[in-house]
Design a binder for these strands. Structure first.
Length: 272
DNA sequence: AAATTATACAACCGCCGCATT
DNA sequence: CAATGCGGCGGTTGTATAATT
């Protein structure tokens, strides 16, 4: 039995044009993946990881070349603020940029400019006390996207969705998903996605946790989907005491509506 | 103009979680 | 169950190029 990577005289270092061509042809023919098979298929004297890396970071035609645009830089900073050195996650939000690109860009262009002690996120800033519950701002979706979302829930066999309304005068509603039962949402259009991220990126420190939490609970509406009909159940917490509210929030893992405002996958990553 | 130092980034290394044996 | 293999990740580094002296 052969130990991993122990085969004799495997090529290392910079890739030649010939090697690139061989690898490209191999992936055109067999598709991406099955990296352990690639070296023999392509006729390359390289280990599988080297081949994978070369494709993912350089040869893949989806990779965006050239300098980072201003909005890309802004996103990197904000996402790094939120997530730390989770390069793969960050790159997932920057179309065409690889995790390696983002990491390199951070290390060479941004690292020294960002003072860690100025980071507003207590999770990533040792000089700040870590509150029990860290909560991003709730997302805001437009009213007309709501039915779409319910349809999506039905398709996904999602049993319960919860939603909260902002002030009656508002055109917006706050939408949340229960991560406990694995539900997730499809965001109906790009503007909603952008709005969601703008809200997510807001400085968490500016939020008055207590009062906002309370407001969310007071405005809470549970929406259950059974068959074709959404069942709307209003929850009135207006007379509930602060201590009771706190219990409710703590029961709910992260504070009721708040983690729900995150993309569920991202939240799971965030919480690891 | 040559020598040097600094920068950018492609690629490597070791580790991880998961699947298979 | 342990051992092994795999894809994937993030920290780090070797080196070509750019900038400076």
């Amino acid at each position: 039995m052969e130990m991993e990577g122990s085969s004799l005289s495997v090529r290392k270092g910079a890739w030649t044009e010939e090697e690139d061509i061989l690898l490209k042809k191999c992936i055109e023919k067999y598709g991406e993946g099955k990296w352990h098979k690639v070296p023999s298929r392509a006729g390359l004297n390289r280990c599988r990881k080297s081949c994978r890396l070369r494709w993912l970071n350089y040869l893949n035609p989806n990779i965006k070349r050239g300098a980072f645009a201003a909005d890309e830089v802004d996103l990197v900073i904000r996402l790094h603020n939120l997530l730390g050195n989770r390069w793969s996650l960050i790159a997932g939000r920057l179309p065409g940029r690889t995790a390696n690109d983002v990491k390199n860009y951070w290390n060479t262009h941004l690292k020294k400019k960002v003072d860690p002690s100025s980071n507003p996120n207590p999770r990533l800033n040792p000089s700040k006390p870590n509150p029990k519950v860290i909560r991003p701002r709730p997302q805001i979706l437009s009213n007309n996207s709501f039915p779409v979302m319910l349809e999506e829930n039905k398709k996904n066999n999602t049993a319960v969705a919860a939603a909260a309304a902002t002030t009656p005068a508002s055109n917006n509603i706050l939408v949340s998903a229960n991560s406990g039962n694995g539900s997730s949402y499809c965001f109906p259009n790009e503007n909603d996605e952008i709005t969601r991220w703008e809200n997510l990126m807001m400085n968490e420190n500016e939020v008055d946790f207590q009062s906002e939490q309370r407001q969310n609970l007071i405005n809470n509406i549970n929406i259950s989907v059974f068959g074709d009909q959404p069942i709307i159940e209003e929850m009135d917490y207006s007379t509930t005491s602060n201590s009771q509210l706190l219990e409710l929030v703590e029961e709910d893992n992260y504070g009721n509506l708040d983690e729900l405002s995150l993309d569920v996958d991202l939240w799971n990553e965030f919480e690891q």
